[in-house]
Every structure is written in C-alpha cells, then in structure tokens.
Simulated assay, not measured.
Amino acid sequence: MSGEHLDEELRDVFQEITNVAMGRAADLLARLLNNYVVLPIPVVNLMERAELNMALTSLEEFESVSAVCQGFVGSRIAGEALLIFNDTSFQDIAELTNFAGDITPQIELELLMDIANILIGACLKGLAEQLDVSFSQGQPVILGQHLALNDLVSGKAGRWTRALTIEIPYRLEGRNVDCDLLLLFTEDSLKVLEDKVSFMLE
C-alpha cells in the first residue's frame, strides 16, 4: 500500500465485502423495527485520526449525538467499531420497538445498546465470514450521550493515529433515524487484510 492513499482496486474490494456484511445487519435491524432500512454505499478511506471528524460530515447537521464503541480483534486484525446516533432518533426507535413509557436517559441507553449490538455484531460477523477470520468482540463502551460531534471525535475514539476506516450511514425510511457505523482497522491490520482479500484482486 503506497503513500497515504488506498489502492483503488483494494478500496473496491473492501466496499464489496462491506456491502454484503452491512446488508445482513440492515436486514436484522429492519426485522427488529419492522421498517425498511435505506442502505448507502459504504465509504472506505485510509485516514489520520485528525481527519476522522471530516468522515462524519453526514452527522454534522445534528446538534447532539450519542455513541457506543466496541473493540474487536482476531487473526492479527484489530480495530474498533463506533456507532454514532443522532439524538433525535430515540423517539422514533422507541415507537418502532413499541416502547410506551417516558424516554429517560436510561431507556435511551438501552435502545442505543440494543441497536449497537445488532449492527456491530452482524456487520463484524459478515466481514469475518468473508475474510475467513474469527473476531472476538470486547464489551461495548458508551462514549457519551448528548454530545456535540466534535467533542466525541476529539476526545474518545481509541488510541490509533492512522486507520482504514469504513463508514456506513444507516437510515430508516420515513423515520427520523440516522446512525453511522464506523469501522476502524488499525494500520498494523492493513497488511493482513490485504492478504485476506488478495484472492479477490486476481
């Protein structure tokens, strides 16, 4: 992998396997919420930590966000999954899950964790199967509730300096639900990932 840029062919392959993985995750979410999930094209980049907030431009319009982070490791590949929610999503998610009471911060937390478990778990499982690896996932960690996006990005997202990032913005059709799943693979993992997908480049 030369310089700061990701080889175009490699980016296409990562995009392709992510498409399959996120499709499965979206299918599970759609069943849980009984609502169609709009799937975008995943955005694959190699970026410095300082550039991370640029990757999250799709969430910039929201005043506050809540986020969960979950590390994963396996077969010499390591990284973290970051799920960022716009805070206006909670009312709609509560309705879709038939929750009838007051939406307290604790309930928001539970809803956030439920969605995170589905999206992160299914997406990593889909990637692992295609790469023929096995990931073990750490405990999900709440990075914060009702934060400004800049506060989230500047403070918390791991200890990496440069990473392969895959951004997947999920939207629910006809609902005010937006969340971004960001997969960050450490720089050390890139060579292993390249080897794993090399057969797809032939």
Rank of each mutant, 00 (worst) to 15 (best):
I142G: 06
A81M: 06
E167R: 12
G126K: 03
N45P: 00
A116Q: 03
D188S: 14
I77E: 00
D12G: 10
E48M: 12
A148H: 10
D87L: 10
V20A: 13
I166T: 08
G71M: 07
L83I: 13
I107A: 10
A163Y: 04
N176C: 11
L59S: 02
M200R: 11
G158W: 04
A78G: 08
M47K: 06
N86C: 14
E187K: 09
N34M: 11
M200D: 01
L109P: 00
K191N: 11
L119V: 15
M113Y: 09
E194D: 08
D180L: 15
L56Q: 03
G174V: 03
F199N: 06
G101F: 04
E95Y: 05
E80G: 05
F62V: 04
E187G: 08
S66L: 07
I168M: 15
L39I: 14
R175C: 12
E173K: 12
G174L: 07
C179E: 01
R24G: 15
E9M: 13
L52H: 03
A122G: 08
D132P: 00
T57S: 13
E60M: 11
I77A: 02
P42M: 12
N86G: 10
L149N: 03
L82F: 06
V13Q: 05
E4N: 10
A25N: 06
K156H: 07
D180F: 06
A163F: 07
L172W: 01
T161G: 12
L124W: 03
Q145M: 07
T57V: 12
L39M: 14
T165Y: 05
D7E: 13
Y36I: 14
L190T: 03
D151P: 00
I166H: 02
I17M: 09
S154Y: 06
V43K: 09
L183T: 03
T186W: 02
L164S: 04
R31G: 15
L201Y: 02
P42I: 07
